Computed example of a mutant assay.
Amino acid sequence: MQKTSLYLLGGLLLLLVLLMLNISLGSVTIPLKDILASFFNAEVEKETWRYIILDYRLPKAITAVLVGSGLALSGLLMQTLFRNPLAGPYVLGLSSGASLGVAIVILGGAVFGGVFSTLFLSKFTLVIAASLGSILVLLAVLATSFRVKDTMALLIIGLMFASLTSAVVSVLSYFSPS
């Protein structure tokens, strides 16, 4: 118990140091004392530093910590569910489903051309297409998981969905106009 607490304390201390380093470094290097002063609303050497820290660097750093924690937790849950240390998003075909959604949108934009091409190929459209593709594959795997109770069989079914969606992406790319 003592050793685990020491590792946890060391990890949190390392996270705090790296967080401060992340906020400090960039195109404008900001000293640590000014970072801490901006957190406690004290006087900062340059007022633009407070703006840079509180409006740009701190939200990005907190988002990075939260996303990294979420990815670690989801990986742990997937590895625990399948009792396999190699389990990841590729195992259930979620990544292949995301690539299928993007391939459909990109090729749909190429087929329709003109105005539809600029509409289909925006950043947000590709993100939404990737999300919808992976959600649809997840729903298909979940639908089969109600009938199949064995985790190994579910793992194989997920790999089959991954192979199927990868094959569809390959066929789409083969028949693409460019």
Results as ranks from 00 to 15, higher is better:
L136K: 12
T4G: 10
Y90L: 12
V28S: 09
L19P: 01
L136R: 11
G11R: 09
L77P: 00
V17K: 03
V17G: 07
V28L: 08
V105D: 02
I156M: 13
I104P: 05
D55N: 14
L18G: 09
K123N: 12
V115H: 08
S117E: 13
S170F: 00
Y7Q: 13
L66K: 10
T48H: 13
L8E: 01
T125I: 11
D55L: 11
M20R: 13
G88S: 09
M152V: 11
T118I: 15
V141F: 03
I156D: 02
T151C: 05
S134Y: 05
L81P: 00
Y51I: 15
V137G: 00
S95A: 09
T165R: 05
L100I: 03
I157M: 09
G101V: 02
D150V: 02
S131Q: 08
L172K: 09
P177A: 07
L139H: 08
L142R: 09
P85Q: 04
P89V: 11
T4W: 06
L77T: 04
V91A: 07
A153C: 05
V148C: 10
K60G: 07
S166V: 06
D55I: 08
G10A: 10
G26R: 03
F112M: 13
S163D: 07
L21G: 15
M152C: 07
L155S: 11
A61M: 10
L21Y: 10
V169Q: 01
L25T: 07
G113K: 14
G108L: 12
S5L: 13
T118G: 14
A98P: 10
I53E: 02
V105P: 00
L21W: 08
V137D: 03
K123V: 13
K33P: 01
F146L: 09
A143E: 09
T4M: 06
L6H: 05
L139P: 06
I35M: 02
Y56E: 13
F120L: 08
P85I: 00
Q2W: 12
V28C: 00
S99P: 03
L92K: 03
Q79T: 04
V91K: 02
V127A: 14
N84S: 00
F82I: 05
L32T: 14
R50E: 01
K123R: 14
S99G: 05
L139A: 13
L121S: 14
Y174H: 14
S178D: 12
V67C: 11
